[in-house]
Simulated assay, not measured.
Amino acid sequence: MNQPIYYTLGRTGLRVSRLSLGAMTFGTEWGWGSDKAAAETVFDLYRDHGGNFIDTADVYTNGTSETWLGEFIKASGSRDELVLASKYTFNLAAANPNGGGNGRKNLLRAVEGSLKRLQTDYLDVFYVHAWDQLTPVEEVMRTLDDLVRAGKIRHIGLSDVPAWYAARAQTLAEWRGYEPVSALQLQYSLVERNIEHEYTRLATELGMGITVWSPLASGLLAGRYKRDAATDGRLAAMQGNGNPAFQHLTERNFQIVDELEKVADEIGRPMAQVALNWVANRPGVASVIVGASRPEQLKTNLGALDFELPAELAHRLDEASKPVTPFPYYFFTNAMQGMMYGGARVGDKPTGYRAPVLVEGSGSGVE
């Protein structure tokens, strides 16, 4: 792996690795993942390669992920070197109506629980894990700002929320002088590109760095699953369980995998590296979360930025994975926009005219 490059996260001064370590696989409570020894090896390997951005959540493996991570960080004496992120929203206690959701009561409970399990007195980034469709955004942002002022969290992130909600949260922060949203954590990969309809522009316009989850679609884009042999692994185990995030074993997606395999063969790189390289270089992306149950998987993933994907091959992947453009987004395509200007050429300004063009190490990833 070459010398790592760090991007600033959104419009902050916080420098994060372009590949971050996802700790959702730390623990075996969910029927997959790694035992403690393997998890610690993965943690050490990531740090040895210059990685500094680690992502977890209170709900991951029922709290084991945070607990082990806290032990690994303490044993290595690496807290000040790391950018540690966690999330809250999901209920960890049965039959407790206030044990989940985004409200102030659960938010304060959750951050204290994460700090205890992680054996730290602050979190560098704390995310709302998902929109609960209930709590006013004013309550969420005020409470998060209070936690920043109290020194318990440094930066604020949103994960898996509607675009309008993120825009309202950021506008509210600007209006009232709250700590702004610095990160948007969203699913993004060759088989899941729907954030391109709205979130990419949202992030670059409003100063939020996109942190990508599931860039390999739970192993599908690493070539782990075949059409007629997808009988084990996480996707097979969770097929049909009702969680759309794991329903990737479709013919459309296998056609994307076919093209990815061809591109990977042409440049002599593993499929996982090509898929990660593609998503890491998309507009707005600050960091890509990579998880691994085994050290060998992480070693492969950490080489994803050691090469440049030729433009013509990137274009082939773009075309093979192009999402359907639904209403109203087709009104914002070049063909429809051209109708507004009577065929005159408009929009020939250089990339980055509307948003600052940032040098290597930028937070938005815009080139």
Rank of each mutant, 00 (worst) to 15 (best):
T89K: 13
R18M: 14
G233N: 10
T204Y: 08
R104I: 15
A167S: 09
V83Q: 05
R149L: 07
R168P: 04
H129A: 10
A304W: 05
T351R: 15
G99Y: 04
P295M: 05
N2E: 05
D228H: 14
I267T: 07
W175M: 11
A237T: 08
Q239E: 03
H129D: 10
L144K: 14
F327M: 12
T64L: 15
R47E: 10
V257K: 07
P162L: 07
V263F: 13
A355R: 14
D55I: 03
A236D: 03
N2L: 08
L184A: 15
I289G: 00
S293R: 14
F332N: 07
Y127A: 11
E66G: 00
V148D: 14
R109A: 10
E138I: 04
L276A: 00
A275W: 13
E40G: 04
F254H: 02
L221M: 03
N301S: 15
G352K: 14
T204P: 02
P350C: 09
Y341C: 03
W68M: 14
M271F: 03
E261G: 15
I156D: 10
V359R: 13
Q297I: 05
Y341R: 02
T250W: 00
R252Y: 02
F43E: 05
G363V: 10
L260F: 13
Q185R: 06
I267F: 12
Y122P: 00
Q170H: 07
Y353L: 15
M336Q: 13
E360R: 06
K87S: 10
G219S: 00
M208C: 09
Y60K: 05
H315T: 12
V285Y: 06
V140D: 12
L108H: 11
A264E: 12
L9P: 01
Y88Q: 09
W30T: 02
R154M: 09
A130G: 11
R227S: 00
E40Q: 13
S321W: 07
K87W: 08
G99F: 04
V161G: 08
R345C: 11
V257F: 06
G242I: 04
R154A: 10
N241V: 07
R168S: 11
L45G: 06
I5V: 13
R168Q: 15
T12C: 01
A272R: 05
M340A: 13
F72A: 00
T211Y: 08
A237E: 11
N52R: 13
